[in-house]
């Protein structure tokens, strides 16, 4: 019983992390019509930068949350720069853009290896969240509950941003119909930069938030990117609700798969993605942005 409960909590936690990672991936996909293959790299860079700030490498030590936010901002700048300097030059050539993000992901992976070495870096849970909560007979790690909380807060904040702000309205217009958005006077190119930065920043933040659970290691990018892909394929591109539901579903498939069918864990994970792509290309939960 406790085993199942813990597995469920782990699934939801992982789903929350995946949501932070894939919300931006989904928005970028919805708006620019390309899978950003550096998204895993952004996650990893966020985690590496955050762990460095935490370790006080720059002469001063930051608190966990400050480190997470600052690394998220830096990764956001990186993402925006990549959009401006590289993807912009290839506007309209989706295939070339995908290939460029693939190349950049190679470069980032090796840069991280140069900078932080090959050994995994473990990140301790932030102060005050190292304990456990007791519910009846079951005991849950407090930090995992906090991650779920953060994911929910971000989901609501993103939803409000998309539904209530001018920027959100422009993003929605761009996702629905890029041509039309251009016609009504939205500067789509600047929107691309903003969304790319926002998505990258969210991924970087997710990396740091996930670091106490996953730790940071070379290859983390290649582990996370396919998961974001699965989420977005299941949830549909450009859909916040889709990403949310997709993240939870993938969180469950991943954790239960690892626990129950370890030999076929990846098969179980990717098969739904293939089936959805083949049978229902608009995603399981439709394509509308919510």
């Amino acid at each position: 019983m406790t085993f199942w409960l813990l597995l469920t909590v782990n699934s939801v936690t992982f789903g929350g992390l995946l949501f932070l990672l894939s919300a931006g991936f989904s928005l970028i996909f919805g708006l620019m019509r390309i899978p950003n293959l550096t998204h895993g790299s952004m996650f990893m860079v966020g985690a590496y930068l955050g762990s460095t700030f935490l370790g006080g490498a720059l002469g001063f030590t930051l608190d966990f949350w400050a480190a997470a936010i600052i690394s998220a901002l830096e990764v956001a700048v990186l993402g925006a720069l990549m959009e401006r300097l590289l993807l912009r030059r290839l506007a309209g050539q989706q295939l070339a853009q995908v290939l460029v993000t693939l190349g950049v992901s190679f470069m980032v992976a090796d840069l991280c290896l140069m900078g932080w070495g090959g050994d995994p870096i473990s990140v301790s849970t932030p102060a005050g969240l190292g304990g456990f909560v007791r519910v009846g007979l079951a005991v849950f790690p407090l930090y995992r509950m906090a991650v779920i909380g953060i994911a929910v807060v971000f989901a609501i904040a993103l939803w409000l941003m998309l539904e209530r702000t001018r920027l959100g309205a422009m993003i929605r217009a761009g996702v629905d119909d890029p041509q039309m958005a251009r016609v009504v006077g939205i500067r789509v190119s600047r929107l691309f930069t903003i969304v790319f930065g926002l998505g990258a920043g969210l991924a970087g933040f997710a990396g740091m938030i996930g670091a106490p659970i996953l730790s940071v290691y070379p290859g983390l990018d290649q582990d996370m990117l396919p998961l974001a892909l699965v989420v977005v394929i299941l949830g549909g591109t450009g859909s916040l609700l889709g990403s949310f539901l997709g993240s939870i579903v993938v969180g469950f498939i991943y954790n239960f798969g690892q626990a129950l069918l370890p030999e076929l864990a990846y098969f179980v994970l990717f098969l739904p993605m293939v089936l959805v792509l083949v049978l229902r290309p608009q995603g399981l939960f439709g394509g509308r942005l919510l």
């Binding site: 899978p35 995908v98 990846y266 994970l269 990717f270 290309p281």
Partner: peptide
């Protein structure tokens, strides 16, 4: 197009996952 890339990527990951696990 892009969907073809995604499907082949997922299929490749399945094979990799089987080899790995």
């Amino acid at each position: 197009g892009i969907s073809f890339i995604m499907i082949t990527l997922a299929l490749g990951e399945i094979i990799w996952g089987l080899a790995y696990r």
